[in-house]
Computed example of a mutant assay.
Amino acid sequence: MTDPSTAASASSIEAHTHVLAAEHAGTETAGAPGKPDKPRSLASDAWDDLRRRPLFLIAGSLIALVLLMALFPFLFTQTDPGYADLARSRQGPSAQAWFGYDNQGYDIYARTIHGARASIVVGICATTLTVLIGGTLGLLAGYYGGWLDGLMSRVADVFFGLPFVLGAIIILSSFGSTGTTSVAQIMFLVVMSIAVLSWPVCMRIMRSAAITAKQQDYVKAARALGASSSRIILRHMLPNAVAPVLVYATIALGAFIGAEATLSFLGLGLRAPVVSWGVMIADSRDIIRVAPHTLLFPAAFLTATVLAFVMLGDAVREALDPKTR
């Protein structure tokens, strides 16, 4: 005879086995049958982490709004930013002009919307050029080392010792002082001055990341297999060293927008007929006591944009840093 307790235990084990088999079959059905799950990359992990951060959502929404203003200003206003009426000079905000009028009778709201384009273009171009120069030099210095690393480091030290405002004054005063300088030439000089004075920071960040990546096993394995230096740099080191540079570029973009406004306020950057937040702030400095609204609104948009890029950079840095998870 079979013991009742033994039979109960056997039936229980058999039922449990059927349950596990059913769960296993359901798991295989949900995924790819017979295939292991694809490993997730650092970018996908970072994106999943960013989507859950309120700081990223707020900063991304502000930046998206500013970019929409720069690309399609007609969606926000139909007023010509170049139309002036001296009869409305210094009038405050009203239903006809939400932000009021400046000293020349320009609609401040229309000029604030259209001014986003010049500020964003200068910031993006300056950031791109800075990352290209500094990232390339830092990657080469970190990989080859030796005399090239020493030379790049000493050149970077020279630029580090030059104050940004003083260096920009020298560059823009030397090359952009002629009255025949066009708007495109002025924008090019502003972008060049920012990039020339800012690339050492990006170079040092990329150099440190390249030195760390060069010591990893996958680089040593690629070198042992006979891979060329260019292949090692572009296929192995660059993808694993670009994360800190990406964080720097995000924060630097906001800083460069503020730098353009600073240079325009000093009379060395963009100037009329270009419409930018820096130009509007420069035009309001003489009438700020009698018409503070001429400074308030462009300065508020400039501050919010710079702060949004800084917050975005902080969120990206925390998402790409595995130590914070």
Score class of each variant (00 low, 15 high):
159 F>C: 01
98 W>D: 01
293 H>Y: 05
142 G>H: 11
142 G>Y: 03
112 T>C: 10
176 G>N: 08
303 T>H: 04
188 F>I: 14
164 F>S: 09
291 A>V: 11
270 L>N: 05
43 A>E: 06
301 F>H: 04
242 V>Y: 08
119 S>E: 07
312 L>K: 05
201 V>K: 11
63 I>S: 08
187 M>W: 02
274 V>D: 12
10 A>V: 14
204 R>N: 07
96 Q>L: 08
10 A>E: 11
260 E>K: 02
252 A>Q: 13
273 P>A: 13
14 E>T: 13
312 L>H: 03
255 A>E: 06
267 G>T: 02
141 A>M: 07
213 A>Q: 09
33 P>D: 10
208 S>L: 10
18 H>S: 12
290 V>Y: 05
147 W>A: 13
248 Y>K: 02
87 A>M: 10
311 M>K: 03
168 A>Q: 03
167 G>N: 09
234 L>P: 00
128 T>Q: 05
177 S>T: 12
186 I>H: 06
225 L>E: 11
46 A>F: 05
290 V>K: 11
132 L>P: 00
155 V>I: 15
15 A>C: 00
214 K>I: 11
144 Y>A: 12
37 D>S: 12
269 G>A: 10
2 T>Y: 12
48 D>V: 11
57 L>Y: 02
39 P>V: 15
315 A>M: 03
66 V>Q: 09
81 P>Q: 07
129 L>Y: 03
127 T>S: 04
226 G>R: 14
185 Q>H: 05
256 F>E: 03
118 A>H: 01
170 I>A: 14
97 A>T: 04
279 V>C: 07
2 T>S: 11
155 V>L: 15
34 G>L: 14
7 A>P: 00
188 F>Q: 03
70 A>C: 06
279 V>M: 09
204 R>D: 04
54 P>G: 09
31 G>C: 06
241 A>K: 06
60 G>T: 10
98 W>I: 13
244 P>I: 15
42 L>D: 05
93 P>F: 15
13 I>V: 14
174 S>K: 11
63 I>E: 10
214 K>S: 12
117 R>D: 01
205 I>G: 01
170 I>W: 03
305 T>C: 08
190 V>A: 04
252 A>E: 11
306 V>A: 12
271 R>C: 00
20 L>W: 04
164 F>Y: 13
138 G>R: 05
201 V>Q: 12
130 T>W: 09
74 F>N: 06
20 L>M: 11
236 H>L: 05
142 G>W: 07
197 L>M: 14
84 A>H: 12
268 L>T: 03
47 W>N: 01
259 A>G: 04
86 L>V: 13
309 F>Y: 13
217 D>L: 15
149 D>A: 09
40 R>D: 01
223 R>Q: 10
293 H>K: 02
14 E>W: 08
85 D>P: 01
